[in-house]
Amino acid sequence: MTAEAVYGGVDIGASATKVALVGGGRKIVASDVRKTGVSFEASAAEAMGAALASAGLRLEGLRRVVATGYGRHNVHFAHATRTEIACHARAAHFHFPRRITVVDVGGQDNKIIHVNAQGRRESFKMNRKCAAGTGAFLEEVAQRMDVPLERIDELARQASHTVHMGSYCTVFTKTEILAHMRAGEKVPEIVAGLIESVVKRIVEMDPLAGEVVLTGGVVAHSPMLAEMLGRMVRRPVHILPDAQLAGAFGAALLAAETE
């Protein structure tokens, strides 16, 4: 346990709830990731409780807490809220303090955020209402193929070629996969095609400028996505350290910086 000021960030996403506690030197001293349950309040409390326990702290010991994510307004112990866009931008610029394009591939939505050298957001875009190209797309299609999400990256790396998906609709893609299976394509090649489909959705959202920094739970489990994106856009693509914690980490940083 440390006597220095500790700040908390809580990110209640559509799929997962993440907590990051940040201490001196803006380092993560404890964190927690768990599935977002039916109660945002309970998910936030449980994730925060677990992070506090591992840091040997109590909630009152946190100097300030910022909440973000879809459930940000349900975190009653937070002192303020910020959007995921602000938090991901802050986290990415902390690690890459220069002009960057942040691409967050989340559970239900994707975001592209242009950040200037000073860390100021110049513009952002979220995907349309449809969750095509997001974590939900991979989750649903992987389930159809009986492939655990954690194995997607490993399987895709075994592919001898990529099966290109023509549709960006999750439901249509599931039907398309049936046709590919009937045609004798194997799981690794199809999985590589699914990752490529996510990459295509990102590229068509907004032009990517400067270095690209990927955040969110999907890239944390699928580094191949970054490699494919890099090949497609021909520019450096980084995966943020602790990519799944990006929102929570950014929220904790903003908690410290907006006292």
């Binding site: 879809y70 959007t83 995921e84 602000a86 952002f124 979220m126």
Partner: peptide, 19 residues
């Protein structure tokens, strides 16, 4: 219309204007 997505977009947009 996705109300949640619109709300987040609007809030982030006003944050951007403030920045």
């Amino acid at each position: 219309y996705s109300e949640e997505q619109a709300r987040t977009n609007i809030e982030a947009y006003i944050e951007q204007l403030a920045e």
